[in-house]
Amino acid sequence: MTQFEHANITVPNIDAALAFLLNAAPDFQIKTDQTHQDSYRWVHIGNESCYFALQEPHSPSTSKDTRKPYQNIAVNHIGMIVDDLDNIKLNLLALGYEQNGDVTQEKHGRRLYFYDKAGFEWELIEYDTETLTDRYNYTD
Rank of each mutant, 00 (worst) to 15 (best):
R111E: 00
K31I: 15
D134L: 13
T129F: 03
V75D: 07
I30V: 14
D65R: 07
Q34W: 13
Q29A: 14
F52L: 15
E126T: 08
E98L: 06
E106R: 15
H44R: 10
I78V: 13
Y136V: 08
I14P: 08
L85W: 05
S61P: 00
E123R: 11
G96R: 02
L18F: 03
Y97T: 00
V11S: 02
N100D: 14
N8P: 04
D65S: 02
R111K: 15
K64I: 11
T139E: 15
I45R: 05
I45C: 07
Y115F: 15
F20S: 09
L92N: 04
L95M: 03
L18C: 01
A16C: 04
N8T: 13
Y51R: 03
K68V: 11
A7G: 08
A24G: 09
A94D: 13
N91S: 11
G79S: 13
L93C: 02
N8H: 11
I30K: 12
I45N: 09
D33W: 05
Y136W: 11
I14A: 00
E98Q: 10
E130D: 14
E121L: 10
V82S: 04
W42C: 06
L85C: 02
L92M: 05
N23M: 13
Q99R: 04
L95Q: 04
D15G: 02
W122A: 03
K89G: 01
R110Y: 01
L22F: 00
A24H: 09
E56L: 03
N72R: 08
G79I: 09
H6K: 03
E130C: 08
Q71V: 13
V43A: 01
L93K: 10
V103K: 11
V43Q: 04
E130K: 12
E106L: 15
Y40V: 14
L92K: 01
D140C: 10
H58F: 12
A17G: 03
S63E: 03
E56W: 01
G109W: 08
V103Y: 00
D134A: 12
N137D: 15
E123K: 09
G101E: 03
Y138L: 15
H58P: 07
A19H: 10
V11I: 02
D102F: 01
Y97H: 02
P69M: 00
G79T: 06
H108W: 14
D15Y: 01
P69I: 01
I88K: 02
S49I: 07
A94M: 07
